[in-house]
Amino acid sequence: MDTLLKILWELHPDINFTEDTRLLEEGGLDSFDIVTLVSEIEDAFGAVIRAQDLIPENFQTPKTLLALIRRLRED
C-alpha cells in the first residue's frame, strides 16, 4: 500500500493520499494520470493492467486499486 501511495503522491504532490481517498473525485485523477499510473504499477508490482480493467470501480480508492493489482498478480 505504501508503494502505491508513494506513486500517487508523485503524480499529485498537492494531495494527501490515504487508502480511502476517492481517487477520481478528491484525487483529481484524469485519464492521463491513470495511464501514467498503470505503467508505474507495472514497474513497481509487475501487474499488467488491461484496457478492460480501466473502469471507475477499480479506481475508486487506493484500496480497490490494490485489490485489482493483487487479483491480476494471482492470474
Binding site: S31, V35, V38, E42, A51, L54
Partner: peptide, 16 residues
C-alpha cells in the same frame, strides 16, 4: 474514445 481508443492504445504492449 477514452474507453475504446485511448486506454487500449496506451496500455497496449507495443506502446508500453
Amino acid at each position: 474514445m477514452r474507453e475504446y481508443v485511448f486506454f487500449p492504445v496506451s496500455v497496449s504492449k507495443p506502446v508500453r
